[in-house]
Design a protein around this nucleic acid. Structure first.
Lengths: 216, 216
DNA sequence: ATGTGTGAATCGCTTCACAGCT
DNA sequence: AGCTGTGAAGCGATTCACACAT
């Protein structure tokens, strides 16, 4: 009885996002020795409503006990299974620049079972050299290396101009998910999931917010 | 006639996000020498619908010419004004670790008028030392330094445990917007805008997506 | 003829409210 | 009594469709 969207409804990406947050908060509660939590309490910690919490969970099964709430460690485990982080993932990083380098041995990744196995760049001066715990490999060897290391997820941290061609190579090598730090929309087949990470864009929503407040 | 939500309706954050994307795409089009673009064309580049594009813009004014579309450089300028990036912003970075360091002299920031003026840390070994173009200052001097440099936005790149106290200091110094890289929910007054940036969470949505596809 | 701007219709997410389990 | 799980209601965001401007 795996908790995987048993009713095969489609679940909104907002729900998945919130599950990630519940997971993080539940981890804290477990660490603090807390054994159970109600939807109301969990909601307050996140700034959501309790109905939201219960509805989100209801897409995947029934995890609580009426009158009692949820077991923190149980629910944490169930959400891990839903998110697919109850097993390790092999991740490759393309781009050994500033951002790429910062992500190597980022503790949050390994803590959640995302293992950075490979690092690629097309800069001849970097290839063969060690960057933190990884040796930079050439993108020309990517397909072979991916097969060897069973890579399923790619993090793209290359300049905007190089993003699409790097994505193409990764897709050709069979990758099904890309986290893209390059400020460029990627064109990929429908069975490949892309998430865009764009810090400049986040700053823009902040400058918008400040502007709006001032105009009130 | 500034293009600032003239009808004073509330605009959803999804709309603001998309404006950021339009801005980026319009910049490209301008660079390519393209002079005009229709909502249909712009939508196709982003993967949205043309009605979406027109509706988003309609909250702030009427920028197109019927039958002709939009002037790329004009619309780009108008969106910059809406987002508040038609003027420079002084930004401070708290946390001189991996991520913080990677963000210093990140080209996308200065290109959009976000200027990293100050860098703070509470590690005695780092204070006074130069990290790229910035000298690390002590968080105890933050309030004074913020006033001197007229800081309006803070980027938090500290460990989760340190995030709330760093945010408190920044808020006390009068900052109204925080971009938080620490995987921890921040408690701030209602007039402070926080955006959460969480790479591990993005990876989780990717592992979820892969899992779902496999379960079909 | 083309393509915007926008009310109206639709869709989907969030919240309500309560039956039912512990 | 307390709190979950969930249909139904409410509401906000997206899309439709067309009048209107160039």
């Amino acid at each position: 009885m795996k908790p995987e969207n048993t009713k095969s409804q489609k679940v909104s990406s907002s729900t998945v996002r919130r599950l990630s947050k519940y997971y993080r908060t539940l981890s804290h509660l477990v660490d603090e020795g807390r054994e159970s939590v109600s939807s109301e309490q969990l909601a307050k910690l996140e700034g959501f409503t309790s109905a939201q919490v219960r509805k989100d969970l209801s897409y995947f099964g029934t995890f609580g006990k009426r009158g009692l709430g949820y077991s923190t460690s149980d629910l944490r485990k169930k959400i891990a299974a839903i998110l697919g982080i109850d097993r390790p993932w092999n991740v490759a990083l393309i781009g050994a620049g500033n951002i790429g380098t910062a992500l190597i041995d980022y503790r949050e990744f390994s803590a959640q079972g995302f293992h950075l196995k490979l690092l690629f760049d097309n800069d001849m001066n970097k290839i063969g050299k060690k960057v933190k715990s990884l040796v930079v490999k050439s993108i020309t060897d990517l397909e072979m290396e991916f097969e060897k290391e069973k890579i399923e997820i790619v993090i793209l941290a290359v300049p905007a101009e190089a993003a699409q061609s790097a994505a193409d190579v990764a897709v050709k090598a069979g990758v099904k998910a890309i986290l893209n730090f390059a400020p460029r929309n990627l064109n990929v087949p429908g069975d490949v999931t892309v998430r865009q990470e764009n810090t400049a864009m986040e700053l823009e929503t902040l400058s918008y917010a400040i502007n709006q407040r001032k105009n009130l």
